[in-house]
Every structure is written in C-alpha cells, then in structure tokens.
Design a protein around this nucleic acid. Sequence first.
DNA 1: GCCATATTCTATATTCGATTAAACACACCC
DNA 2: GGGTGTGTTTAATCGAATATAGAATATGGC
Lengths: 208, 208
Amino acid sequence: MPQRTTDTTEPESSGPKSSRTRERLLDAAALVLARKGFAGTRLSDIAEEAAVQAPAIYYYYPSREDLIEEVMFVGAAAMRAHLTDALAALPANATPVDRISTAVEAHLRHELEISDYAKAIIRNGNQLPEQVGRRALAEIAGYNDIWRTLVAELESTGQLRADVEPAVGRMIVLGALNWAAEWWNPERGPIGELIRTAQSMVLHSLRP
Amino acid sequence: MPQRTTDTTEPESSGPKSSRTRERLLDAAALVLARKGFAGTRLSDIAEEAAVQAPAIYYYYPSREDLIEEVMFVGAAAMRAHLTDALAALPANATPVDRISTAVEAHLRHELEISDYAKAIIRNGNQLPEQVGRRALAEIAGYNDIWRTLVAELESTGQLRADVEPAVGRMIVLGALNWAAEWWNPERGPIGELIRTAQSMVLHSLRP
DNA sequence: GCCATATTCTATATTCGATTAAACACACCC
DNA sequence: GGGTGTGTTTAATCGAATATAGAATATGGC
C-alpha cells in the first residue's frame, strides 16, 4: 500500500531509499500536464515518462485526479514559497522598488527553472474541475496576495503612476511574467538578460 | 453532404439561409475549446452548445480534428485581420507610438470581445498536435510579424529603451495582453479602462 | 399535396483509457 | 530455503467518446 497519499511540500527526494518512484511519477505528471493539458494527460504517458507500467501509479496515488491535484498543489506551493523566501532574504530596509524587482526575478527564475510544474499551473490553472484545482488555487490566491502587497507598498510610497489601477497593473505584470513560460527557452540567451529586461519593463510600466 | 469542408475567412453568417448550423457549431466549438482545452473538448459538449445531436457535426465537418483545426485557423486569421485593419485605419502620418497604442487596443478588444476564439487560441496555441495547429500557427506567426514591425518602428525612431531587446520586449508585451483573457471580465469595469491602463503601461515599459 | 434533396436523428460498432484483480519478483529476516 | 512485505507487472473489466449506418424528418419547388 502507498506510504503516503496526500503529502505536503517536504523534499520528496530524500525519502525511503528504494522508492523515489513516487517523485518520478510526480515529475512525469508535471511534464505531461504541461505539454498536453489536464484532459490530455494520459496515465500511460506519465507511466512511460517515469519508466513504469501504468497500473504502478495506483500504488502511490489513489487515482489520476489525485496525482494531478498533487502536481498542481506542490507546484503552486513551491512557487509561493520561493517568492516568500526571496523577499525574506532582502534587508529590512529594502525599498518597494527593490522588492518588486526581486519578485520579478524570483517569479521568472522559478518559472523557467522548475518549468514543468510552472507550465502545468499556468496552462491549467483556470481550466480544472473544481475539486482538482481547489488546493492549488488557494496557493495561487496566496501568491497573488503577496503581489497585491508589493504593489500596495509601491503605491503608498507614491511610486505607482496615477493611471494604473493597482489590481489591473498587478495582473498585467503577472501576465507578462507568466507568459514567458510559453515562449522563452534557454537558446534565446542567458536567463539573466530576460530577467533584467523584465525588471526594467515592469518598473517603468508602474512608476511615475 | 457538407457544402464545404475547409473554408476560409468569409463571413459565414450570410450563407444559405437555412443552415447557419455550421457556424453555430464553429462558435460552439470555440467556446468549449476555450473552456476545456483541446483534449477536453468533447463532440457531445459542442453538440449540446449548438443544440444538435453529436453525429450532426459530421454532416458539416469530416472529423473532430477538422472542426477544431478550423476554429483555430479562423480565430487566428480574424485576430490578424482585426489588427491589420485597425492599423490601416490610422492616418498615414501616425507615429510609431500611435501605432503601438492602436495595436494594444485592437488586441485587447478582439481578445475580450470575440473572446471564445481568442481564448481558444491563447490557451491551446502551443499544445496542439502538429497537424491541427499548423495553419493556425502560421497565422499567429504573421500576427507576430506585425508586432515585430511595430516594435522595430519604435526602435528606429529612437523610442525604444536601450535595455529592451526588441524580441523580448515584444513577447513581454504580448504576454501581458494575452493573459488578460485569463482574468479580465466585464464586471471589473468597462473595457475602456483596461485598455487605457494597458496602453499606458506598455508604452512606459518600452519608451526611454 | 407530392417529390427530391438537405438536414438531423437513433441506434451501433469500435477504440481508447482508467481502474481493479491477481500474479510475480525481490529483498530481508530468521 | 520458507515467510512476509514492498513494489511492480500482466490480464481483465468497464465506461466513455469518436465515428458510421441507416432511418426519419424537414424544407423548398412545383
């Protein structure tokens, strides 16, 4: 029987020596999900990617939906944690501009480095059956809250242009960043260049 | 037998009086495609949306994939045509800034007004079987070319900031606009406000 | 009102994919 | 060198979805 069914964000890699299969399956599911979308994700594809037979999946996850649900949740939680950590690492006197800049970098790095999970979330976030998306959407809402705060800080220090309604500005910025998962690939050049350009564009789009 | 199988962009509405069924099916397919994604699009859902039984679809389209392929192509072609028309309507002496501004409005309006087709394209563009996406992707490439030109015009008149690589800047802007399909809805306020904010942010993000 | 054609429906064949059942392998323990 | 538990496989089940066949119904011309 499965060792655990709905687990949290702990580092899956270091579990019981023998079976990192569970983690391989999760990664494989993220990959397939990113490529084919929720409805197009076949257990047989996941199994092939993870080098097992399809029914083996049921040893670790009670159903296809549970597996997908976990990919979405783990991916969203990791994204949120990554941003939280990046902001926490800033000195206490960092300016709102510094914080936004850091957030842009954190978002892009995470998105483009853990890109299967990020793509899975970005592509499927809004088109999942309620039950499958619930936990993930809650994480995403938390992620949005962080950004809401960042924009509010900018505004309260007079650094948000008057013609930018905070909620709209936030979504436009997040859209620009999310979409990078659709088009960016390493052959376009080092990620650092993209990050610098994005930071510059984001800040110029928001500041007076 | 079907009157036409793979048709072009002509106004479908004004064909033979009796059967606007073909167009209803196309619209229904766009709607379902936008909501559920390529793999999640069931003929039965399309049929229900168009108020026919599923097998009736085969009277108009030879297969599920042909129908979807046409939604994608028609949608992409319409988007491109809408942008082309909007730019052509500008006076000959319109500045590069005017032209970008117009393009932002055209993109958003089309996306949010004909939103089923646009959402279908935005959500499924990169995750279609090669054969299904081919014609649509060609249209989208053409669409991108227009934007490439717009950015180049901006650059050649010294209105593009030096730290913005044109290709990256273009994709970031398009991402911001595309993503609106995911979050914007009329209850957030009139579309005009969104457009003005987006125009302002886009131009500030690009100009010196 | 009647025919011919256009359109749509009611079955039905067939295929594909999730899930379950049951068997197999293999390690470790004694 | 048999027994137990953990992973994993192959074989069987079952429902859902595309597509086909052929019957049934509209519709327009006369």
